[in-house]
Design a protein around this nucleic acid. Sequence first.
DNA 1: AAGAAGCACAACCGCAGGATT
DNA 2: GAATCCTGCGGTTGTGCTTCT
Length: 257
Amino acid sequence: MGRYSCCYKQKLRKGLWSPEEDEKLLNHITKHGHGCWSSVPKLAGLQRCGKSCRLRWINYLKPDLKRGPFSQPEEDLIIELHSVLGNRWSQIAAQLPGRTDNEIKNLWNSCIKKKLKQKGIDPNTHKPYVDKEISNENNNNITILDDKKIHEKASSIEVVPNHSSSDMSTTTDKSENMGIAITIPNNNTNPFEAISNLLFPTPNSCENPPISSNAFSWQPDELLQTASDLMRSDWYHQINHHHPTLQPELLGHQTYP
DNA sequence: AAGAAGCACAACCGCAGGATT
DNA sequence: GAATCCTGCGGTTGTGCTTCT
């Protein structure tokens, strides 16, 4: 109360700053300091809001700013600080004299993230991407994405029959969309049935798996371990023996929930 | 040569928290 | 204590330049 807001927005300019506007702001702050930002545009003769003036000053006009590309040591420092501080750009910027939080954030999103991914490093966790894979004696592969991806994406779990090839890239594509995908190559149909029964037991399932069936509450590691155990179990071999003709397309794929 | 796509950078928006009345 | 304002932060969007087709 008793103050005026910087948001009494009438006909305020937006978008890129012109050289004339820069000059007005620079002159005003050089002579008088910024004081209360909300009053700066009025005193400097600008049709901008105080917020916009502040941002322009901090990110572009401030005299101690270091312009130009980031050096390799600076990039390394940013990566190191990000691994400790996360997306706290202002705190990261505080450790790099002459650099702004906005500048660092842009660098991270447009450049560093990409470089880390190319090196196989997850920019969020700073750990290598590790897709876990197991296979049993029949060469049935199960691939489970790394924990980060699973926790981000696992709004659903899908069992995917892979009839056409043993190329695991299909698994990755599916997994990006669906969370956890388990792919069974086409050389044996019953592993699919086994995993499908394991994850999605129904009244029509031929036999109940010898394990708890509440798959959705499992952690990824538990799921991986259980699937692995299952595929090595006597139960799996019984299914393999009793239902040799069951084809995966009869089951389709099921999504839960 | 022209349009499309990709990229880097600048600026905006919404929110949170502290200060002031 | 409530209402309002100011500042700073992080996510997102917009803009203009470059490269590709």
